Simulated assay, not measured.
Amino acid sequence: MNKINSYSTGVVSALAVFLGLVVGAIVMLISGYNPISGYVSLIQSAFGSSLNIGEVLRSMTPLILTAAGFLVAQSAGFFNIGLAGQVWVGWLVSTVFVTTHATDSMIWVIPVAVILGTIGGAITGAIPGWLRAQFGASEVITTIMLNYIVLYIGNTVITSLPGKYMSASDTTANLSDATSLRWSLLSNLTGGSRLNTGFIIAIIVLALVWFIMKKTTLGFEIRAVGLNMDAARYAGMSDKRTAVLAMALSGALAGLAGVTEGLGTYLNIFVQSTAPSVGYDGMAVALLASGSFIGIALSALLFAVLTVGGLGMPLVSGVPTELVSVVTATIIFFVGANYMIRWSLVKLDEGDAKDQAKAAAKKQAKAKKEDA
Rank of each mutant, 00 (worst) to 15 (best):
I119R: 13
F199Y: 14
M145A: 11
V305G: 03
Y7V: 09
S193T: 01
M145N: 03
G312Y: 06
S45T: 13
D281F: 02
Q272A: 15
I212N: 05
S45E: 01
K358Q: 13
N155A: 09
M106E: 07
D230C: 01
V205P: 00
S75F: 00
Q356Y: 10
T61E: 02
N338A: 14
K347Y: 11
A372G: 14
L253G: 08
D371G: 12
L323W: 09
T143K: 04
L83T: 03
D355F: 02
G82C: 12
V17S: 14
F47S: 08
A337E: 12
A133S: 13
Y152G: 03
G120S: 10
T179W: 02
K358F: 15
R132L: 02
R233D: 11
V87I: 00
L186M: 09
K240S: 14
F97W: 10
Y7F: 15
P128D: 01
V89E: 07
I4M: 01
A113K: 12
A300L: 04
T103Y: 00
T143G: 11
A300E: 11
T9S: 15
A16F: 06
S290Q: 12
L288I: 05
I203S: 03
L71N: 09
S169A: 08
A359D: 12
V114I: 15
Y266T: 14
L189M: 12
T142K: 09
G191H: 02
E350M: 03
A286T: 03
V140A: 09
F334Q: 02
A372L: 14
A284D: 10
G279W: 10
T95Q: 05
S37E: 08
D170E: 05
I43V: 15
T265S: 15
A68E: 06
V140N: 08
G219D: 13
Y339T: 13
V114N: 11
V346K: 06
G318S: 08
T321K: 09
P320T: 10
N52V: 00
A126L: 10
L256W: 06
A367L: 10
K347N: 12
T260Y: 09
V72S: 08
W91R: 04
I110K: 04
G192K: 03
A254Q: 06
G336Y: 08
V140M: 14
T66A: 13
T9M: 11
N228V: 13
